[in-house]
Design a protein around this nucleic acid. Structure first.
Length: 483
RNA sequence: GCCGAGGUGGCAGAAUGGUUAAUGCGACGGACUGCAGAUCCGUUUCCUGGGGGUUCGAUUCCCCCCCUCGGCUCCA
């Protein structure tokens, strides 16, 4: 297991990571409330924690990664009512769309997406335990957590209960003993999905679902908890109070990893502002590889400016530059294979290539500094710049050696997925070659009108040409992740 | 008001108590092209919100102020 360090919000410091039960690591990330289309900010959550999970696994830990789905809550119910749809069906629909989107983004590391409604028995059990311990009280079919009974409340976020401004955004519920108390079980209202409970039919409050799920799947104490920084308070603070209150053990979470917000030209991305770019649209505009690159091209804790007119185009250009040598390598290897004869690498270059993955791990092991790793990868692409013209002289093994840093990026950062490889369709390739020959002959007799006509026709068929010194290269459009 | 995260070149965005403050985008120039594109090479010396302090030295550490973003108890 490779040691690494990580910033923990609770202590406000970067600390060496020490799992509770090595090599096992439990990680929970607050997932979607699928009441509407996911937006580009949600995509950052999916991609960043995916990269975290990939790295932790690469470093030899046995990670179990859970991302919950809040498929029943006020927003889901309200929205379903507006649309005259069933709430659970509505959230199921948006969750499916979410899965489709994140799969395009190469998010492959989540072990389980538990739905809140599948954990109602665990939720009820936890609420009962809290009532039994005197930390929660029943009022008219609702159950509230009594914050005053949990002295550590506020430790995660640094909030002092007496300094809060009650009702700043949310109406204070008159049934509460204190404004800071929060509901953990809600009595049924007409037309809402409900479940039986000792306090009558009702449904879970928001915060408990997470601790009930993690209690069941990860135990009373686990290692990593992620989510947007906007959830730090009250949601994560409430999770601490619930989880530690119910189990009597502290801390609930070893390391809290909070993700910076995606900012739309200095404003938060929000439906009310009307500046939301849906995740699906961002994927369509940028291409999934470039969008993933965009998210990882900043430190996860920093806010990240998302300018729809610039960010995605810039990410796409950057990724093309970064991957250009790798694209060439894969073209050569895809055609001739590893056994291809040719020159071997100068020893220092071979050594540099072999050493890169370890260096990249080292950079990432410092609080998941994906941006640092990407900068180093750009350095590698620049090193290969002068070699790209000579790739056709190198042996297959030499080419594979040069590709090591990119394979690291594919494994850990999820860049350069296999699907962006040139399509190896030999029969079509021979047809393309026929057209290229015709075009070469046209050019030889200076018939450029005919040459351009052939080039345009090939382009229309998805074949991109590059005239280079002496030779014309071609590849399928989309090979660089450009649909 | 309180809590938290931030403020770095035209833009995005790293890092650091100390020679030229990464990297990318953009821009400009060049190579290659019939042209275009892609690719490659080079240039882009005057960039760390403001004011104090500590220090031989501060962008980094401390204090005050300004600004932005997130949160303030079922919230986008």
């Amino acid at each position: 297991m490779r040691p690494f360090q990580v910033y923990d919000t609770r202590t406000g410091t970067v600390r060496p990571f020490v799992p509770r039960n090595p090599p096992r690591v439990g990680m929970f990330v607050c997932g979607l409330t699928p009441y509407a289309e996911a937006h580009a900010g949600h995509g950052r959550v999916a991609v960043v924690y995916d990269a975290v999970a990939r790295a932790v696994r690469r470093w030899g830990y046995r990670l179990f990664y859970v991302q919950n789905v809040t498929n029943v809550d006020d927003k889901v119910i309200d929205r379903a009512r507006e649309l005259n749809r069933d709430p659970l069906e509505l959230s199921e629909h948006h969750f499916r769309a979410w899965l489709t989107a994140v799969e395009q983004l190469e998010v492959r590391s989540v072990n389980l997406y538990p739905f809140a409604t599948d954990y109602v028995p665990e939720i009820v059990e936890q609420v009962e335990e809290l009532v039994r311990r005197g930390l929660a009280y029943v009022a008219d079919g609702d159950v509230y957590y009594e914050v005053a009974k949990f002295p550590r409340y506020g430790e995660l976020s640094g909030q002092r209960v007496e300094a809060l401004r009650p009702g700043a955004r949310v109406q204070v519920d008159p049934k509460k003993r204190a404004p800071e108390d929060f509901v953990i079980w809600k009595s049924a209202k007409p037309g809402e999905p409900t479940w039986p409970s000792p306090w009558g039919p009702g449904r879970p409050g928001w915060h408990v679902e997470d601790t009930a799920i993690t209690g069941r799947l990860l135990g009373p104490q686990y290692d990593l908890h992620g989510g947007g920084t906007d959830l730090k308070f009250p949601h994560h603070e409430a999770e601490v109070a619930l989880g530690e209150g119910a189990s009597g053990r502290s801390p609930l979470v070893g390391y809290w990893l909070h993700l910076g917000m995606l900012e739309m030209r200095g404003e938060k991305m929000a439906k009310s502002v009307g500046n939301v770019v849906s995740l699906e649209a961002a994927i369509r505009i940028a291409g999934p590889e470039a969008l993933r690159f965009f998210y990882l091209n900043a430190h996860y804790r920093s806010p990240l400016v998302f300018d729809p007119d610039r960010s995605l185009a810039e990410a796409r250009q950057s990724l093309t530059t970064l991957g250009a040598p790798y694209l060439r390598l894969r073209e050569e290897l895809g055609r001739d294979g590893l056994a291809r004869p040719g020159r071997e690498l100068p020893p220092d270059l071979a050594r540099a290539a072999t050493a890169m993955p370890e260096q990249l791990d080292g950079l990432l092991a410092n609080d998941f500094a994906t941006r640092e790793a990407i900068a180093a990868l750009f350095g590698w692409s620049r090193t290969l710049g002068e070699w790209t013209a000579k790739f056709d002289t190198l042996s297959g093994t030499a080419l594979a050696t040069l590709g090591a840093p990119y394979r690291w990026a594919a494994e850990v950062l999820g860049l350069f997925p296999e699907r962006s490889l040139p399509r190896p369709t030999a029969d079509l390739s021979s047809l393309v070659r026929v057209a290229l020959d015709a075009r070469a002959r046209a050019r030889a007799r200076n018939d450029f009108a005919e040459a351009d006509r052939l080039r345009d026709a090939l382009a229309a068929a998805g074949v991109v040409l590059e005239d280079d010194a002496g030779a014309t290269r071609w590849r399928w459009r989309g090979a660089e992740g450009n649909p």
